[in-house]
Design a protein around this nucleic acid. Structure first.
Lengths: 246, 246
DNA sequence: GAGGTTGTTTACTCATACAAATAGGGTAGA
DNA sequence: TCTACCCTATTTGTATGAGTAAACAACCTC
């Protein structure tokens, strides 16, 4: 027998989103876990029971569990059931995990940790970019910078340009794993920026710093690029901390 | 009707491993993609056809696809089918992805990129560890160092101790995302070490370097820790490069 | 009391039916 | 002829139930 919900045509969101059901369930469960509503070690209800609670089929539920297991959030075994993994097994830098973390406001500690990681990675990436950038890289950075100046960081287009600028730098570093890491962080930084702007106006014009960084990369000066990027991240951190303590 | 394979009791491995079927399929497909047997943009055969080829049910196959999609390797949409994502979407630092990459010998470029990332991250982590380490951290490092000295890096136990030493340092840095990143890299480094030893004997005794690093962290000297870790990674890279060009 | 054995619980696998989405072609209209 | 729309075929997505295998616990034998 088909599941009885034929009496309502509307796509009952159950949760949210226009994605597939397994994706929605994965997202909702992921947000719940990352938000602390399920603690590491907790055992989820059995497949049949939980799928029924969520009003989805076991198929869809199991596929959601597979997604979360792949990201290190869950572990399931026969007899024992499905349980939330220890934090140390979570792939905190997975793009989805980062996005889900920022769904329910992340802890101040987490944001600080993320900035600490940026402070380590991005200056080094900028230095590499200054050494290895091609003409195309410079063109992309220049274009992004221009867009950024035109729209400002308070607009969607401006933030996209900011992100494009950072992405261009990281890709100029010519290091696959570094790019993968960066793109995750870049996304998170975008959320942080939005988060920041939600609370107060932009306290300072970030354009001059960006331009100095760009010039250093154009000049092919790794040390200057490293220094400038360090300053830039430090200032972003200062802004964010300001926003975190109103 | 049950699937007809009752005439053979043996767990036909099909591929490998003692894990669940969906896990095996995910691994095999993942290795094939990372090994270049499927290129980004390639469309996989339809679910029904491919599942039949692999001699598994559609359910198991689909769960495998969910796993790979979660790691950014695949994207599937109705009508279009399931296709291999662009490399830029792959989560190269996912622990499974790293492991699968090392299944079929990774490119020299990739190993070099990984070491470049280690050169960026691990010295910084060591510096943080020197600032923040607790007594327990030091005890764990000391113990690992001792084990490492006792067994040597040519044994399984010795390599485990090496990994434990590095893990202890990274955990002492007190930064969740950094630890997640590191544990991925640490695993990859282990494969690299095995990889290295498979080709030739250890060219140099790594213990003195490790001890100097340990002393710097005990002394709470971030700069010394950073310098020493930099040396240590650089030497490891030199050894690996030696192994890569016989 | 140690070690093997049985039993129970849970996730895992399979098979099948049907639903939803969408790319691409076909068709009507301007 | 071109454009806009609809239609349909194909592919993934969802649901359900039956049956399998693995992990753990309690028991039972020696």
């Amino acid at each position: 027998m088909r599941q009885d919900r034929g009496h309502e045509d509307i796509r009952l969101p159950l949760a949210s989103g226009s994605r597939r059901i397994h994706g929605s369930v994965a997202r909702d469960l992921g947000v719940a876990i990352l938000g602390g509503r399920y603690a590491p070690g907790d055992v989820l209800p059995g497949e049949i029971e939980f799928a029924e609670q969520l009003k989805v089929s076991r198929t869809a539920y199991r596929e959601a569990v597979r997604i979360l297991s792949a990201k290190g959030l869950l572990e399931s075994r026969p007899r024992t059931g499905t349980r939330v993994s220890q934090r140390s097994r979570w792939n905190l830098l997975d793009p989805d995990i980062l996005a889900w973390t920022f769904e329910s406001e992340p802890s101040e500690t987490f944001i600080r940790d993320l900035f600490e990681l940026r402070m380590i990675v991005e200056p080094a990436a900028a230095a590499l970019a200054a050494e290895r950038r091609s003409g195309l890289d410079l063109a992309r950075m220049g274009h992004a910078l221009e867009e950024m100046g035109r729209h400002g960081l308070s607009t969607e287009a401006g933030r996209a340009a900011d992100q494009a600028f950072h992405t261009a730098i990281l890709e100029a570093a010519r290091n696959g794993p570094l790019i993968a890491l960066s793109s995750s962080i870049a996304a998170a930084v975008t959320w942080t920026t939005i988060f920041k702007h939600r609370r107060q106006g932009l306290p300072r014009d970030p354009m001059p710093d960006h331009r100095v960084l760009y010039e250093a990369i154009v000049a092919g000066d790794p040390d200057a690029a490293r220094r400038t990027m360090t300053d830039l991240v430090r200032l972003a951190l200062a802004d964010t901390e300001l926003a975190l303590r109103p």
